[in-house]
């Protein structure tokens, strides 16, 4: 792989407004900017309709952006089109990406061929990929005869086989069972590391993103609302989420007292014990929590920091963003 220091992908004030017959406007992508360093594996997250697919297609020139600039490996995409496409490959969401009437191998040869790769020279690598994705015995089977998971893996193989420094994967694990999805993400992770490729991966499957990506960009309503390393995000949320077990049923008025101070409060009470889950708005609020518990006469049996996962973090960020938007609309 060629070595590029600097920036693999730069998106600058990218904007796409769809106009539906003049009247309605959809701001699918609303002036987003981000940069991806070479070798980075970035997750693109967001609820349905957040603008992930539109962003990816704008970067690839499949959708013409309303405004903004995209550069790949330091070269402006618009002025180097379509030659610049030799640096990127993609599995696109929702479409088949493959010829169902051709075999796995024929598809690989075709898509790398129109990418400008001589097929003989890369045969070994194709074989290696097919092997890695567990498709070796399906090599010569027509794609339409494969299961959904195998089709999806074939699409990923066809993209990776182009050996581009930059790879876009839009929902590569859609419709895969737990095992296949696990296998796919392990393989992706290994390959990204081994070959030092830059990967932008969009998925609703948080386990996949958490496992494969080091950094996430979270979008809602066409905007970037978080862009951070997963490790850092985990750290941020980790310090604030607690789980406590109290002896006996919940003391009178405890729930109401806590609810006034701590968001995300959940209290589950049985005659023998009470479980409390909450988040601290500020790190030092732990003292206030202790005071409230002592005043209520509670006995703490257990206290633990909740291990956040990406899914919870994602939901929390998206929820906050929605609240902010609602608030900003009320004058």
């Amino acid at each position: 792989m060629e070595h590029h220091d600097g920036i693999a992908l730069e998106v600058d004030q990218l904007k796409k407004v769809f106009r539906d017959r003049g009247t309605r406007e959809v701001r699918a992508v609303d002036g987003i900017s981000f940069r991806v360093a070479p070798g980075e594996v970035v997750g693109l997250l967001g609820p349905n309709g957040a603008g992930k697919t539109t962003t990816i297609k704008c970067i690839l020139g499949l959708i013409r952006p309303t405004s903004g600039r995209v550069a790949i490996l330091g070269r402006d995409v618009a002025s180097h089109y379509p030659g610049i496409l030799s640096q990127v490959s993609a599995v696109l969401e929702g479409s088949r990406n493959l010829y169902w009437r051709m075999s796995v191998w024929e598809n690989i040869e075709f898509f790398t061929g129109i990418h400008g790769l001589p097929r003989r020279q890369h045969r070994r690598y194709f074989e290696h990929l097919v092997e890695r994705f567990g498709l070796a015995d399906k090599r010569d089977v027509e794609v339409r005869k494969l299961s959904q998971g195998m089709k999806q893996k074939t699409a990923v193989v066809c993209a990776l086989a182009k050996r581009t420094p930059l790879v876009f994967l839009d929902e590569p694990t859609l419709g895969l069972d737990v095992e296949t999805s696990y296998e796919l993400r392990e393989t992706l992770k290994d390959l990204a590391e081994e070959e030092n490729r830059t990967v932008v991966l969009s998925s609703h499957n948080m386990d996949v993103v958490q496992d494969v990506c080091k950094r996430v960009i979270i979008m809602t309503a066409g905007r970037v609302v978080a862009d951070d390393s997963i490790e850092h995000l985990m750290g941020l949320f980790k310090t604030r989420a607690y789980r406590l077990v109290l002896r006996g049923p919940a003391p009178e008025g405890l729930e109401a007292g806590l609810a006034a101070h701590f968001p995300g409060l959940e209290v589950q009470s049985t005659p023998h014990m009470t479980q409390v889950r909450l988040r601290l708005p500020e790190p030092n609020d732990i003292y206030m929590l202790m005071d409230l518990l002592r005043d209520a006469g509670a006995t703490i049996e257990e206290i633990s920091q909740e291990e956040p996962d990406l899914e919870k973090i994602f939901l929390e960020i998206v929820r906050k963003e929605r609240e902010n938007q609602c608030n900003s609309r009320i004058p």
Partner: peptide, 18 residues
């Protein structure tokens, strides 16, 4: 209809050559 058109548009030679 079969969802391969966009992949053809990703050819660095340009779709017109394909």
């Amino acid at each position: 209809q079969t969802g391969t058109l966009e992949q053809l548009y990703l050819s660095p030679a340009g779709f017109k050559w394909v």
